[in-house]
Amino acid sequence: MGEFLDRARQHELLLQLRDEYPHWKVFDLKGDEEGRRETVNLHYLLEHRLIDGQPRFSSMGDKSVLWKVRITHDGLDFLAADGGLGAILGVVTVKLHDDTVRDLLIARVEEDGTKDNATKVKLKETIRGLPAEMLSTLVKKAMETGLGHVGDIGAWIHHVIG
């Protein structure tokens, strides 16, 4: 049945259902090859949660299938050029508390073998006194510098996350 998967037809189905949204659309499919092809594509969209609904056998004699389906919010977002609300709501925000950034910076100062103790003490005092805005600027600059030293970003990410 995998040979019945048809990206163009799936797209057409989603567009039809988008035009009916939020209402349900009924497909009465026969048991022939065309009906099986349509059923395979509807099942595929259903499994990916782009549509909601389920098939019901309307008559066992000719194996026709009655589908009552509608597009989901994921289906609408899939069709949207900008990814829809899912793209906006799916943004991941990483928050580092000021104390965490300070602790990371202080740990790096302590690990630095090129600085003498008096310099390290002075740097640590400076770090402890930095306002949140300055810590934010330092984190951004550290990210830019760190990423600037990564040759192949894809290989580096793969290496880090395993």
Rank of each mutant, 00 (worst) to 15 (best):
A80Q: 01
T72W: 01
G148W: 07
M1T: 02
L50G: 00
F57I: 15
Q16P: 00
A155W: 01
R49E: 15
E47F: 13
Q10V: 03
R36H: 09
D28C: 10
V92Y: 10
A8D: 15
H48A: 06
D52I: 06
I51E: 04
I88F: 11
H158W: 10
N117M: 10
E125Q: 12
L17Y: 05
I71C: 01
V150R: 02
L105R: 02
G148Y: 10
H158P: 09
G75C: 07
F78Y: 14
G148A: 06
M143A: 13
V101Q: 01
L79F: 06
I88E: 13
T39I: 00
M134S: 13
E33N: 08
E133A: 14
Q54W: 00
Y44L: 06
K30D: 06
D19P: 00
R49Y: 01
L147E: 06
V40C: 05
R128D: 07
E38R: 15
L138E: 00
A118L: 10
L89A: 12
G31H: 01
V65Q: 00
R102P: 04
G151H: 04
R18Y: 02
R37T: 14
L105E: 05
I51P: 01
A87K: 13
H48W: 08
E133S: 12
G35T: 03
N117D: 13
L104T: 10
V139Q: 06
R56Q: 12
G2Q: 09
G129D: 11
L89H: 12
A107Q: 14
E3A: 08
E144D: 15
H73A: 15
L130W: 06
T145Q: 15
L29F: 03
E38S: 13
G35Q: 00
M134L: 15
E47P: 03
I127R: 01
L29K: 01
G154V: 10
K25Y: 08
K63R: 12
L5P: 05
H97G: 14
D32S: 03
G83N: 05
